[in-house]
């Protein structure tokens, strides 16, 4: 708790956006960065998307899935950014450009917006719960704590190869259980 701001002071709109921000901010920055390969630009785009929604709050229907709308807004902003960056990299860095073109193709695919799908995230949670404990721990350290393979290996007292193996197993299990969506 940060003691400075008293909770009572929020308007109902602010309270709604506060919740939306808490739930989606880190997810959304990760999402944008996966396609833009630029963390600062991703943060900026996510911030902008939240502000766009905030400016439009009078005309937004809060009964609709606002998370999905947010992700769609971010997706469009990312596509614009990608298009510009791809043009800029012309004759500058062909590998980087190809990388972004592949990201663009991936982002254009419908499966890219699945992150706001509640059922899908529930299925991911369930799959994680059913994993062997050691496999899950390693996976979560990598995903949520952003630890590298060597860091996890040192923490768990196992070899890097073992970490690699556990994570690839975890991903294989997720791939199997999410086949319905992807």
């Amino acid at each position: 708790m940060s003691g400075n701001i008293s909770r009572v002071d929020y308007t109902s709109d602010e309270l709604f956006f506060r919740g939306l921000y808490k739930e989606y901010f880190h997810k959304a920055v990760y999402y944008a960065n996966q396609y833009l390969n630029d963390y600062e630009a991703s943060k900026e785009i996510v911030q902008e998307a939240f502000l766009t929604l905030w400016e439009r709050r009078e005309v937004l229907d809060f009964n609709q899935n606002i998370g999905a709308y947010l992700i769609k807004t971010i997706k469009n902003k990312c596509l614009n950014e990608l298009r510009d960056n791809i043009n800029k990299l012309q004759n500058v860095d062909s590998q980087k450009q190809t990388d972004l073109i592949l990201n663009q193709r991936s982002l254009l695919d419908n499966t890219s917006s699945l992150i706001e799908n509640k059922e899908l995230s529930l299925q991911i949670k369930r799959t994680l719960e059913n994993m062997p404990e050691k496999m899950r721990d390693v996976f979560i350290m990598n995903r949520d704590l952003e630890l590298t393979y060597p860091q996890i290996a040192a923490k768990e007292g196992v070899s890097i190869k073992t970490v690699e193996y556990r994570i690839s197993k975890a991903l294989a299990m997720l791939r199997k259980n999410l086949a319905e969506w992807l």
């Binding site: 921000y21 808490k22 739930e23 901010f25 880190h26 997810k27 990760y30 999402y31 996966q34 396609y35 592949l102 990201n103 193709r105 991936s106 695919d109 499966t111 890219s112 699945l114 992150i115 899908l120 995230s121 991911i124 949670k125 995903r143 949520d144 952003e146 991903l171 997720l174 791939r175 999410l178 969506w181 992807l182």
Partner: peptide, 17 residues
């Protein structure tokens, strides 16, 4: 594309701000 998006979806951090 499928592998990329599977990766994005499954590796999405499950943390709140």
């Amino acid at each position: 594309v499928k592998e990329k998006n599977l990766r994005v979806v499954t590796m999405m951090p499950d943390i709140e701000a």
